[in-house]
Design a protein around this nucleic acid. Structure first.
Length: 288
DNA sequence: CTCCAGGGATCAG
DNA sequence: CTGATCCATGGA
C-alpha cells in the first residue's frame, strides 16, 4: 500500500483491492455520507468533511492533506489492517462466506467516534437507513456547530443532555427521543464510559452500554464493532438472522441468542468482519 | 388503506 | 427465561 499527496488530494494505491469506499459506506455502518456522483462519496466524520472515490486499488481522497490522511483517515477506514488475511481465514472451508466476501471484498470496518456511533445505532432500532440518516442530519443541523466548510459537527453529550425531549422529537426521532436523552445524560455524567475503554473487557463494556435505555445487545454490539474495534462481536439483527438461518442453519427458525453464539464460535476473533460481509450480502441480494 | 423498518422496553406466562 | 405487543415516523 502506497499513497502520495498532490494538490489537496491524497491518492492511495493498494494491490490487494480490499478497500472500496462505496462498499464500505453502503454497508450500513455509518450514516453521515452522501453519493456525489456514481464514483464519489462525501463523508462527514471526525470533525472533517472528505470526498473520496475510486475502485480497483486506486482510491482518491479529496479535500485532505497527507498529514490529515495519516492521522485521521488511515485509522478511520482501518487501512493498516490486512483484510486479505482475514478473508482467507473466513473463507477457508466455507463456501457461503466465499460468496459473501466475493460480493463485496472492499468492505472495511470503520473506526467511528463512539458517541456519534452510539446515538446513530439507538436511532437505527426499528428504523430504515434513509430515515436514520435524516434524523442524524437533523440533530447535527439543529444542535451541532457549523464549521468553516459549512458542515455540522455531531452535537456533544453535554449539548444534548440539556435539551428537552420535545427538542429531540422535532428531529423526527420518534419514540427514540427519550433514549437519546438518557444516553446523553449517562455519558455526560460519566455513568457510562464510552471513551478510553480499550482496557475494558468486551462483556463488561457491553453491560455498561446496555445501562442506557434503548441500548440492547444488538445496538451495544454495533457500537463496539464500529467504533471500539471489538471485532469479535457479531451484531445479530433481522437480516443477519435471516441469512444465517437460510445459509448455515438449514432454514430452521433460531433465536437471536443462539445465532450469535453459533457465529461467535464459528467465526471467532473475526466474527465482526463475517457479520458485515453477510449483512451486506443479504441486504443487497434481498435474501429472505 | 395496511404493513413494516440493521430493536428494545414492558408485561404476561 | 421466552414470547407477544407496542412504539413514532414515513415510504411502499
Amino acid at each position: 500500500m502506497t499513497y502520495h499527496e498532490s494538490r489537496n488530494t491524497v491518492e492511495l494505491h493498494t494491490s490487494d483491492m480490499c478497500f472500496s469506499p462505496s462498499e464500505t459506506l453502503e454497508s450500513g455502518q455509518c450514516f453521515r455520507f452522501s453519493k456525489k456522483s456514481p464514483d464519489e462519496y462525501e463523508v462527514t466524520a471526525m470533525g472533517k468533511t472528505l470526498t473520496l472515490g475510486g475502485e480497483n486499488g486506486k482510491i482518491i481522497f479529496q479535500n485532505t492533506t497527507l498529514e490529515e490522511f495519516e492521522n485521521i483517515w488511515l485509522n478511520y477506514f482501518d487501512l493498516k489492517r490486512d483484510y486479505k488475511q482475514i478473508q482467507d481465514v473466513l473463507t477457508a472451508n466455507d463456501i457461503i462466506m466465499r460468496d459473501a466476501v466475493d460480493f463485496a471484498p472492499g468492505i472495511r470496518i470503520l473506526k467511528q467516534e463512539p458517541w456519534e456511533c452510539l446515538i446513530s445505532f439507538i436511532i437505527s432500532q426499528n428504523n430504515r437507513i434513509p430515515m436514520i440518516k435524516q434524523v442524524v442530519k437533523n440533530l447535527c443541523e439543529r444542535f451541532g456547530e457549523m464549521s468553516t466548510d459549512g458542515s455540522f459537527s455531531f452535537p456533544s453529550p453535554s449539548v444534548l443532555a440539556r435539551l428537552h425531549e420535545s427538542d429531540i422529537t422535532e428531529c423526527k426521532s420518534g419514540f427514540r427521543a427519550k433514549y437519546i436523552l438518557d444516553a446523553a445524560r449517562k455519558v455526560e455524567s460519566g455513568e457510562v464510559e464510552i471513551n478510553g475503554t480499550e482496557k475494558t473487557e468486551t462483556g463488561t463494556l457491553r453491560e455498561n452500554l446496555m445501562r442506557i435505555k434503548g441500548v440492547g445487545e444488538k445496538v451495544a454490539d454495533c457500537v463496539m464493532l464500529f467504533s471500539m474495534k471489538r471485532h469479535e462481536v457479531f451484531p445479530t439483527d433481522v437480516w443477519v438472522k435471516r441469512i444465517m438461518q437460510k445459509l448455515y442453519l438449514n432454514g430452521k427458525d433460531t433465536s437471536l441468542k443462539e445465532i450469535r453464539a453459533y457465529a461467535e464460535r464459528r467465526f471467532g476473533a473475526y466474527a465482526g468482519f463475517a457479520q458485515q460481509y453477510l449483512f451486506h450480502y443479504a441486504r443487497l441480494n434481498k435474501i429472505v
